[in-house]
Amino acid sequence: MVPASYYLILSAILFTLGAVGVLIRRNALVMFMSVEMMLNAVNLTLITYSRFLENVDGQVFVLLVMAVAAAEVAVGLAIVISFVRHKDTTDVDEMNLLKG
C-alpha cells in the first residue's frame, strides 16, 4: 500500500510543473497544456483523498472538473484560432489588443 503522502507529493510536483510551464512559456497552446496538467494534479489529489477517506465524493468532483476542463479547452482553443487569424502567431506577448 502506497502512503497517501506519496500521491500528494507527486500531485504537488505535477501542479508545480504546470505552474512553471505557464510562467516560462509564451506559446499559448503550450500554456493551455500546462493548465491541463495543473487540473490533472488537482484531480490526483481529489482521487487520493477519495481513496483514503473512503468517500466517493472526490471522484464525483473529478468528473465535474473533467467536464469543465473540456469546456475550457474548447473555448480556449477557439480563442487561439481566432487570434491566429488576426496576427498569425500563438505568442502571448503579441496579445495586447486590449491595451488601448
Partner: peptide, 15 residues
C-alpha cells in the same frame, strides 16, 4: 504545497 498537504495526510486511514 508540500508543507500544506503533508500534515493532512497523516490523519487519513486505510481500509
Amino acid at each position: 504545497l508540500i508543507w500544506a498537504l503533508i500534515p493532512t495526510a497523516a490523519e487519513t486511514v486505510q481500509t
